[in-house]
């Protein structure tokens, strides 16, 4: 079926109301960018899930990174969005004005190069991400080991998607199907979703990032629910292989081990974190974050992250909380549900 026919079909959908969760922040962005919500029946609700690594990073982690950034002869390196996430004492960007050394990096390999060029400075990498970014950190560590670099640390807040999806399925039984992340699935393949589909009796369909890909996946989920099917499918076949990327999975296994992880808004989820194992001086101390600061009473990020409410249903949305003055983490990141909703809100 071509895209025009898919749009026509979804526009005319007249079945019971359906709630579909797009797990990945890049999907949320693409859905807004292409105006998918305006093209399909209002009976098909798209809700934004926990798939932005910045959004689920707890303030306590920011505080830990800030501690390094304030230390003499230390430079903290991080991806752009992390600079704006509020910690207990402001964001890394705020702290820069108070003497913290926090700089943007484009890839972990840049950190290795900088550490090699400036042995007198300790470079600390804020290693945030999902399964997609973990292999790059692992390769950077291997590179640093070979070159005998010791002035480099990784503070990991790496997370895995499947345990969070299980938690959402347990707590949000009214979600009818899941649009599964493309990049993460390139690494983990389709098997983990098959287990979720069998256990929770819902469709889990992997999507690419073009509007056409996402529309095709929405169509497939709608079709499955009509027929009472609950299958895991891969509609991003040119990038995702069934078994995933075995090389990447191997290098993750070699350098990381699973452990409980703190998700902002969700609390601790068992076995959802990836921690460095036996990496000695490379380990910047990532374990043991078991508490998080309290967000302002009205902040509903935790409900947004699990799809219980849409961002504009939060009482702080666009009032106390905006992209230029964010409270909750979902407003901070370019891939966070609240930030995306704000930038695309109607006049």
């Amino acid at each position: 079926m071509d895209t025009a026919a898919v749009i026509e079909n979804l526009k005319n959908y007249d079945g019971p109301e359906l709630k579909l969760m797009e797990v990945c922040g890049t999907h949320t962005a693409s859905i807004f960018k292409s105006g998918i919500r305006s093209m399909i029946s209002p009976a098909i609700k798209l809700i934004s899930g926990p798939g932005c690594p910045v959004c689920v990073t707890p303030a306590a982690y920011i505080d830990k990174c800030a501690g390094y950034a304030m230390k003499k002869d230390h430079i903290l390196l991080t991806f752009g969005d992390m600079m704006k996430v509020p910690g207990t004492d402001g964001s890394l960007s705020d702290l820069k004005g108070r003497g913290a050394s926090a700089e943007l990096m484009y890839s972990p390999f840049e950190a290795v190069e900088r550490a090699a060029a400036h042995p007198e400075t300790m470079f600390v990498v804020a290693a945030v991400g999902f399964e997609t970014t973990a292999p790059a950190y692992a390769l950077a560590i291997e590179d640093a080991k070979v070159r005998g670099i010791k002035n480099l640390k990784f503070v990991t807040a790496l997370k895995t998607v499947i345990p969070a999806l299980s938690l959402i399925c347990e707590n949000q039984p009214d979600i009818d199907g899941f649009i599964c992340p493309g990049h993460v699935s390139v690494i983990i393949g389709i098997r983990p979703y098959e287990r979720l589909a069998a256990k929770y009796k819902k469709p889990f369909v992997i999507a690419g990032f073009e509007a056409e890909h996402i529309l095709a996946v929405i169509y497939d989920i709608v079709r499955q629910t009509k027929k009472g099917e609950a299958r895991a499918k891969n509609l991003y076949g040119n990038a995702v292989r069934e078994q995933g990327n075995i090389k990447a999975l191997d290098i993750i296994k070699k350098h990381f081990e699973e452990g409980p992880a703190m998700w902002r808004g969700l609390g601790i989820i068992d076995r959802s974190g990836l921690y460095l194992k036996n990496e000695g001086y490379f380990d910047g101390g990532s374990r043991g974050l078991d508490a998080d600061i309290k967000l302002p009473g009205e902040c509903r990020c935790k409900d947004v992250i699990v799809g219980r409410i849409n961002p504009d249903e939060c009482p702080m949305f666009s009032k106390g909380c905006r992209p230029d003055a964010p409270w909750g983490p979902c407003m901070v990141s370019g891939e966070g549900a609240c930030g995306i909703w704000y930038r695309n809100r109607k006049a």
């Binding site: 895209t3 749009i7 807004f32 960018k33 292409s34 105006g35 998918i36 919500r37 305006s38 093209m39 704006k84 509007a211 056409e212 529309l215 905006r322 992209p323 230029d324 370019g334 930030g339 704000y342 930038r343 695309n344 809100r345 109607k346 006049a347």
Partner: peptide
């Protein structure tokens, strides 16, 4: 408002950040 190539609509705001 931006009309997307597939005929959807998207609100374009100022740059934030």
């Amino acid at each position: 408002t931006l009309i997307t190539p597939l005929g959807g609509t998207r609100v374009l705001d100022m740059l934030y950040g």
